[in-house]
Amino acid sequence: MIKPNDQELEEWLNEFTIEYPSEEKIEQTIAMLHHYVPKKKKVHLFRQVYKELLGVSRVFWMTNLIYLAAGIGFIFIGGGNPYITLFLLAPLPVLISLIDVFRGRDEGMIELELSFKHSPSQLILSKLATIGLFNLVCNVLLIAVIHIFTEHILLSSLLKYWVVPYMVSISLCLFLSIKFRAVFAAPISIAILFSLGMAISQMAQVYEAVPTGMFLFLFMAALFVLGLEVKMIYKGAYHEFSD
């Protein structure tokens, strides 16, 4: 194979010179073009999030719906244990939705998103808030249904089987999502949740014997970690992630 002579090439290419336009001309061009820049419409952040959730994230609505249906089905038709049901299923919609929340970043859109009106951090946080709130409503609904139609739900058990696993798994998943690809953070968190859930259902007595204070502590710890994560997101710590 014949390789082209670099020196020849360079000489040849040097013949083409492009003169740099003057500072004045650049300014002029910018001033001219400025007229054509469209005026920004003010869109409220939450409205945008709402729109996005409605339009983009079908996954989120679906998982919540499936969660409610499965929860009611397991407990009323299958005669399942409401507490273990809450333990295993309650965090799933949020965990799966996290993949969607971080999709923009995972697909390498962060640079583009940073140029938008609302920063990706704002978007992520408001999406998280929306997802969290809606899922909370679903949970309260399911718990109310269980409480009224089957057995009375004990607050301390709710703490053990719903609040703590819910908070811990979500804060774990959020942490992993900040550091790694969310496509893996969610399945890893679900795997951990299921492993724990299985173990606890097999050793229910041991789990019951753990004092409530311990769970209160875990709850506070998870809350604290969540707070830290929100701060991390706010500061953009998730921009750099490991593939």
């Binding site: 397991f74 295993l88 679900i190």
Partner: peptide
């Protein structure tokens, strides 16, 4: 692919854990 394989393994797991009470 991850979620589909997860459901294939996880669904019986959830059913077994929740309903075997």
């Amino acid at each position: 692919s991850v979620l589909t394989s997860g459901v294939i393994f996880g669904l019986p797991l959830v059913l077994d854990t929740v309903l075997d009470y």
